[in-house]
């Protein structure tokens, strides 16, 4: 069954056919040539290693949230590379440990948002008519409200918790995926291989999942990479406003929110967590742009 799909794709991309590489291999080959994307990828791999390792290197109770008033507000030194905060906690340890929150929240809410968004978008694009109208009008409404506001409303109404934070962030993500999935499905629905799949007697859900969706993967993958970056910024913004991850946890935005009160004399407290957010998001954006160019070379001229 899937051979029908694949052959259509390969004929659409003559380059891939000529060198008899799969579409994925071909994209990877192009991606490897993109220095920015590789730099981003390397940084992200490093970050994932750091996030995993920090759980073993640092003891959460003592190194990360343990209060040590004797060493408070120390400037960066050999002992405390990034200095210490107002409660004497080592900022280096906290920033490294904080990568866990950003990565989990970023990937988590994008994943949930992707599943919801792609489902809604695929249904809207496939069935059209009433379903399309209802899904898209709700989508328009959510799209019109600035995404921080949606998150603020959800989190303040349902209370601050990591789950509610995930939920509030994935709403924004889902709207983007709905739009993309709908547009791709609408263009693909008309093609012959979909008709062929039908003619072979497949049920609708199977046609959507096995034949239509695999063919709109590229824009979805690109959007996913870029969304993780935006979501990490949004998550840290909410923590900065005091309604994201609750206090002692070393989430980067929360660290900035606390550090802000000491910016007058200890400005360094506010520098590092922000740099951490920026480089993470930068890496994701570099990778996302690279993946887009690799998956759709026509776009890059």
């Amino acid at each position: 069954m899937s051979t029908v799909t694949k052959s259509t794709v390969t004929t659409a991309k003559p380059v891939a056919k000529m060198k008899s590489r799969s579409q994925g291999q071909e994209a990877w080959r192009r991606l490897k040539k993109n220095k920015g994307a590789m730099l981003g990828l390397a940084f992200l791999i490093l970050l994932v290693i750091v996030a995993i390792a920090s759980g073993y290197i640092f003891d959460y109770e003592t190194d990360v949230i343990g209060i040590n008033p004797a060493e408070k507000l120390q400037k960066p030194s050999a002992q405390h590379w990034f200095g210490t905060d107002n409660l004497g906690r080592d900022i280096f340890a906290r920033v490294l440990y904080g990568s866990r929150y950003s990565l989990i929240i970023g990937v988590g809410s994008v994943f949930i948002g992707l599943v919801i968004g792609v489902l809604c978008g695929a249904l809207a694009g496939y069935y059209g008519g009433m379903v399309d109208q209802v899904v898209m009008r709700i989508n328009d409404m959510l799209y019109a409200v600035p995404n921080i506001m949606i998150a603020v409303v959800i989190v303040s109404l349902f209370g601050t918790s990591t789950f509610n934070l995930l939920l509030s962030l994935c709403v924004t993500v889902a709207t983007a995926f709905t739009r993309i999935a709908r547009a791709s499905v609408m263009t693909i629905r008309q093609q012959e291989f979909v008709e062929a799949a039908y003619a072979m007697g497949l049920p609708t859900w199977k046609v959507i999942f096995k034949h239509i969706l695999p063919n709109c993967l590229s824009p979805i993958i690109v959007q996913a990479t870029l969304s993780i970056g935006t979501t990490i910024i949004n998550a840290s913004s909410l923590s900065f406003l005091g309604i994201g991850i609750p206090s002692p946890a070393p989430e980067w935005g929360a660290m900035l929110s606390e550090g802000r009160n000491f910016i007058r004399n200890s400005g360094y407290i506010c520098v590092i967590p922000g740099l951490a957010i920026m480089f993470t998001v930068l890496a994701l954006n570099l990778l996302g742009d690279g993946v887009r160019d690799a998956l759709d070379p026509k776009l890059k001229k």
Binding site: G229, I233, S236, S237, F240, G253, L256, R260, I263, R264, G267, C270, V271, P273, G274, I277, M278, F279, V281, L282, N285, L286
Partner: peptide, 21 residues
Amino acid sequence: LFGVSMPNFWLGLMLVLLFSL
């Protein structure tokens, strides 16, 4: 690229740090 990757409130803090403090 840096502009879109930077959390806005952090840029604000950095500007305060530089130009005010």
